[in-house]
Design a protein around this nucleic acid. Structure first.
Length: 434
DNA sequence: ATAGCCTTGACC
DNA sequence: GGTCAAGGCTAT
């Protein structure tokens, strides 16, 4: 049957035949057609779901669900890696015991879990959602920034983030039966994937719990509450405030390096740092230092000036002329300055707490599509920590405040990118008013 | 499309 | 026969 013949049948059959028997036949037939259609599409035709999505230019690939076939290939590769004599039946039994202990809540949305589904304790909703996504090879796109909160009340708002969370928490695509046969037992290779993902997530959970506890209970936030750690970070910026040093390209560079050093030293002391298997210093220096400097300068200004108009627009313009040694300022420079001041005003309007600033700075480092899965988990978990903090400490302002904080991440990245591209990275440093 | 409930079948 | 985790059905 050709594609053009099969498609119109998707939309409906004559309603005269709507008796139960025919309904059943229709559904089975419909499913067969859908499967056939999907096999057809694998031979170079556009995917039904993908085709119905708006094209945003492909530069935000991390916001689009990867192809299910691609995910299956990755799962198979993982299975080949983890297949070793070490994994015995004994450990599989202990896995089953572990599962039995934690049935109460769905690991994806915190609704009531009804059992282990595709390797994870989930509710009926997330079970069905995962099954439909894999069976129909559906693709989703996130209209936000790829970090939507998935809980019982909001789980249907973003399919992309829900499916992403399903995978991150350890649901196994291979457990969805290709032949759709009901009943039976899960194959041994799928059990191995359950075990591997369960162990990996346990390790991450352990580290993240430690981080969570450390951040909320012990020295780290205690230090921040006493302003001492932030002060340590700020001490390199303070001379600018008092005009103790002359602002040059060189002094900007050395101030940035000293601040980043301090940050790296603190970041490495976090309990979850060992789970991030990249060279943070290298990554910071190559990719993230500029974002972090912009964030910390904004926060410093906010802490030291009560009002956003601490420096006038003309005065800033004057400094910009002076700093660039009267080089011609293009209309683009004015636009950048406008954009910069606009973001500064939105940043000043939200009274960040030290905890929020700290979590934002970690998120700024973790947020990337270049990094591995464990790193993505760090982002996800720090997001959850921030979300928990927001709903417990500032419940009346939610969810607007939480969403605004997440949007700051994107805005800071965007502003920084513009400053670097147009060689205006000195701009934030010019705001220090004496 | 979602999610609660139902049916199925391998394993104990 | 009971349990568990697959897929199926259907009201919303």
């Amino acid at each position: 049957m050709s594609l053009s013949q099969s498609l119109p049948l998707r939309s409906g059959f004559p309603s005269v035949y709507e008796d139960d028997l025919f309904k059943k036949f229709k559904l089975k037939h419909h499913r067969t057609l859908q499967c056939k259609y999907e096999i057809d599409t694998q031979n170079g035709r556009s995917n039904f779901h993908e085709g119905s999505l708006p094209d945003t230019g492909g530069n935000r690939a991390e916001l689009l669900t990867p192809d299910i076939d691609e995910l299956q290939r990755r799962e198979n590769a993982l299975l080949k890696c983890i297949q070793s004599p070490k994994i015995s039946n004994d450990t599989n039994m202990s896995l089953a015991t572990n599962h039995r202990k934690s049935y109460s809540l769905c690991k994806v949305c915190n609704d009531r879990a009804t059992g282990i589904h595709y390797g994870l304790a989930t509710c009926e909703g997330c079970k069905g959602f995962f099954k439909r996504t894999v069976q129909n090879k559906r693709k989703y796109r996130c209209s936000g920034n790829g970090s939507c909160i998935i809980d019982k009340s909001q789980r249907n708002r973003c399919q992309h983030c829900r499916f992403r969370k399903c995978l991150l928490q350890g649901m196994v695509i291979a457990a969805v039966r290709y032949d759709r046969a009901p009943g039976g037992r899960t194959p041994a290779n799928v059990m191995q994937l359950y075990k591997y993902k369960n162990e990996t997530n346990e390790l991450i959970n352990k580290n993240v719990n430690e981080t969570f506890n450390a951040l909320f209970d012990s020295n780290i936030f205690h230090c921040f509450d006493q302003i001492s750690t932030i002060d340590m970070l700020f001490e390199h910026l303070r001379p600018l405030l008092n005009s103790e040093i002359l602002l040059t390209q060189e002094s900007i560079k050395s101030i940035s390096l000293l601040t980043i050093d301090k940050f790296i030293y603190w970041f490495r002391s976090l309990p979850f740092y060992p789970t991030i298997n990249i060279d943070l210093s290298q990554f910071m220096i190559n990719d993230r230092w500029s974002n972090y400097i912009v964030l910390i300068i904004f926060y410093f200004l906010k802490m030291n000036y009560s009002h956003v108009h601490f420096i006038s627009y003309p005065k800033c313009l004057q400094r910009l002329f002076y700093f660039t040694q009267n080089k011609f300022l293009s209309s683009l420079s004015y636009r950048i300055l406008d954009q910069f001041f606009y973001f500064l005003s939105t940043f000043f309007n939200i009274h960040l707490t030290n905890t929020e600033f700290t979590l934002l700075s970690i998120l700024l480092i973790c947020r990337s599509n270049q990094l591995n899965k464990i790193h993505f988990n760090s982002f996800e978990y720090i997001c959850q920590i921030l979300h928990t903090y927001e709903i417990t400490k500032l419940p009346s302002e939610q969810p607007a405040r939480f969403n605004r904080l997440l949007s700051f991440l994107e805005q800071i990245q965007s502003i920084t990118q513009i400053l670097i591209t147009h060689q205006h990275f000195h701009l934030p440093f010019l705001l220090f008013s004496s």
